[in-house]
Amino acid sequence: MSLLDDFMIRAALAGIGVALAAGPLGCFVVWRRMAYFGDATAHASLLGVALALASDLPVLLGVLGAALATALVLSARWGGTYAADTLLGVVAHASLALGLVAVSFLHGVRIDLMGYLFGDILAVTRADLAVIWAGALAVAALLVLRWRGLMTATLSPDLAFAEGRDPERERLVLTVALALLVAVAIKVVGALLITAMLIVPAAAARGFARTPEGMAALAALIGAGAVIAGVAASFRLDTPAGPSIVVAAVAVFLAAALAGPRLAERRAENGRVV
């Protein structure tokens, strides 16, 4: 009996895989104020599930397609008749509602709606694990390879242009990475809580980091820690695993929010002494 036979271990590994990619990607979501964008992309994944089941395609493919399509539609310039957050709100809720309606039309298909909404991490199979880690590694690799371009475009699109980079392309990279992450994370935390895995660890890391890279690494670690704590709590207290993971991450965030300012103060004092 190998270690991977234990469903708890598989669950933790799946969650850690997602967290390691979601932490750094979440930093960009925080820096670029894309939280709602992440929500819209994640909610669209439910529509993807319904479409995949209806057309006998792999669910992963449907989710990836729907998330990517939504993200691309949202990235397009919209002429400015509607504010960006209004448009995001419309798309986020439209895709969620459409997804729920579409799922109800699927007669004869057994579908675990709660599983897609809130994740079903304890049911992760070895095959799921391989897909999750492949997706997470792809996202992480994308961020690492394009780090300087992504950072420059995030700092200032004009600066990126002046340095011969195309900030639009960097944004596309983030959009694709986001869709990919949503596709592999839906099994772990579900469509409704994916954004939490993106922004909560990143926000928790902010107060402790001095550099963007430090914040990204710390966010990944905090996310991984939250997964372990959440899965453990779920096992002992019989709570739903996905939400438990998010609760654990939020606990870290609260602790950081309380300790962060004091820490910064002390650091400033030390700086003055040295």
């Binding site: 925080v30 820096w31 995030t154 200032s156 004009d158 926000a203 902010r206």
Partner: peptide, 12 residues
């Protein structure tokens, strides 16, 4: 540039 606004959320 005229004003480079680095978002407060980014430590750098």
């Amino acid at each position: 540039p005229q004003r480079l606004a680095i978002d407060r959320t980014m430590p750098i």
